[in-house]
Design a protein around this nucleic acid. Structure first.
Lengths: 329, 329
DNA sequence: CTGAATAAGGGAATCGATTCCACATTTGTG
DNA sequence: CACAAATGTGGAATCGATTCCCTTATTCAG
């Protein structure tokens, strides 16, 4: 391997000078600069990142913890971040927890050992253990998707989104509306969205049954099963169902169709997420589109600011959403 | 930051001994080991990866270059790799080229500078420039998806897959079958799949028109546009279309429906990829399922073998596929 | 009981950069 | 023209580990 010493020798200067040329610091004469550049060009020398990091304590790598690679949500978010980071020479180290809560903490530790400069966590829960780990983190952490005290975060207004969707369903004449959610440990997706649904239903004085609130685990199949349980346990016919995620809505949609029912005439279906599939099914799914790419961009910007020491204080950024009205309601 | 020296001092031994304890090498008495372990436990000391890498030239990170994060294909592949690498303490550094050919080469260089131990490239072309870059790579490269001379690779039998699908369409009574492909620089997806289609059509003595072969760029929209061009330019009615990817098939499917035609009675539609959406549209898309997770597993295994110096020679692994017959043909 | 083998542990070089400090040379100003 | 400031360059310490080599203590076979 070719090192800075080789370059220095070949160019007839000290390695100090070579370092100056590479990093554009200090005083270097044009003559010396040119000679060094030439040698670097000829040899194809590339500085060792490890040696560099060992001295500077910087890696220019941001670790990103995803709940699941390959969901529409993840990819949009990552694309947004990439845009910002690439422009300033940062790279992204992606890891996926596959929705395993414990792995969220594990990966947080692992990434710190890899000495990334910062970590962006797309969080699925707000457990104390997780919060503690973030607090003791040696590198700055930015969270997407959950509101956490004293941690800079980018969030969506899940409560408002769920409210708006529920209102639309009611406006369209649906009254007996069920809900498919997820575990409430996931504050944003599990609790806030459900609360939005419950509150609006109550405000309209609409009847609700325990059986109408089922939980899934984000998967399509779990949506299918939840819908099945709901219909079986309900005291009468439902005329609508609102799922906390598009994938679960898809499962419900599948079950309803399998029962020979017509969407939306017999039962309306709505989701959140604006997944790609949601456009193509028939009737197309009414859903809510979050600005995931924007969340990626914002989180990256916040990270960069924190890295430059601009903000010590926690910062919240709430992003917009918009309701995509299609044919399933 | 707490270093090996601090541990040595606190435990009353030399840093040589601390290193031995950490790495389980050389002779260390039980007494010394315990003392060191205790101090490490108390302090929460974690060795610096940079210092380590600087000496050992190993990082235990594998770089993975994806054409696109967040396609079903990518995620399945990565999941397969993760399974293997996690078990042996390797981490994965994901990067995405967003289908930009030039970035494939850029990222190849970038990852080498990051001194990853190896690179797995999910390739979309076989250009000489790319091949050259692989040849001069300082770290081993394993390729998925394209056959390359002298490079260990995991590939699918694209030709056979396309043949089988075309045969099925013909068997089902379709005769005037169009094809939506991609640029032939992508040897596997662009050339081989198309060749499979062309050969089978020819073997059956079926008529083909230039207008029946359109290209897209992997996107849904491009499939839509390709289908539109095809129908407009065709000398007579088509009764089938075979797209090289599910996403493009989806676009075609959308256009066909928009024209008020019935699938498969008026026109049959087939794709390759077994995307999630393909299950949910109506009629459900007949497609081919590749063993992407397996590709991830195999590529990871090959990488591990190469890293252990087991194989210097290139190695090809061809994976299976199976045709998922649904309602669109 | 002696000499070799084994066990235990430390000193110091090394990996490839960055950076502080000291020194030399050139330039500028009154 | 003298002296301060600006410019240019190198020596050497440093970052935090690993590892080669050497010394010392212990064990054991003959």
């Amino acid at each position: 391997m070719i090192t800075i010493n080789d370059i220095a020798k070949q160019a007839g200067v000290s390695r100090t000078t070579v370092s100056r040329v590479i990093n554009n610091t200090g005083y270097v004469s044009e003559k010396a600069r040119k000679r060094v550049m030439d040698v670097i060009g000829e040899t194809g020398y590339v500085p060792s990142q490890h040696a560099k990091s060992l001295r500077t304590k910087k890696t220019k790598i941001i670790g990103v913890i995803l709940p699941k690679i390959s969901t529409d949500t993840s990819s949009r978010t990552v694309n947004g971040m990439t845009e910002v980071f690439e422009a300033v020479g940062y790279q992204i180290l992606l890891t996926s927890t596959n929705l395993d809560k414990q792995k969220e903490i594990e990966h947080l530790k692992l990434l710190q050992n890899r000495q990334v400069d910062g970590i962006i966590l797309i969080a699925t829960n707000t457990s104390q253990e997780l919060l503690d780990e973030i607090k003791v983190s040696k590198v700055p952490v930015v969270v997407i998707g959950q509101e956490m005290a004293d941690v800079p975060s980018v969030i969506f207004d899940d409560y408002a989104a769920a409210r708006q969707m529920t209102q639309l369903m009611i406006k369209k004449g649906h009254r007996r509306i069920g809900y498919i959610g997820v575990d409430e440990e996931d504050r944003s997706v599990g609790m806030l969205r459900k609360q939005g649904y419950v509150d609006v239903m109550a405000e309209h004085g609409l009847h609700m049954e325990d059986a109408w609130m089922q939980n899934g685990d984000f998967s399509i199949d779990s949506g299918y099963e939840a819908m099945k349980r709901m219909m079986l346990a309900s005291s009468g016919d439902l005329d609508g169902v609102f799922a906390a995620t598009d994938r679960m809505a898809l499962g419900a949609w599948k079950y309803i169709k399998g029962q020979g029912l017509v969407i939306p005439d017999d039962i309306a279906v709505a989701g959140i997420g604006s997944s790609e599939t949601s456009r193509f099914i028939e009737p197309a799914l009414t859903t809510i589109e979050y600005e995931h790419a924007q969340a990626g961009v914002e989180s990256a910007r916040i990270m960069l600011q924190v890295l430059q020491g601009e903000k010590e204080i926690s910062d919240k950024k709430v992003l917009d959403f918009n309701l995509v009205e299609r044919d399933s309601i």
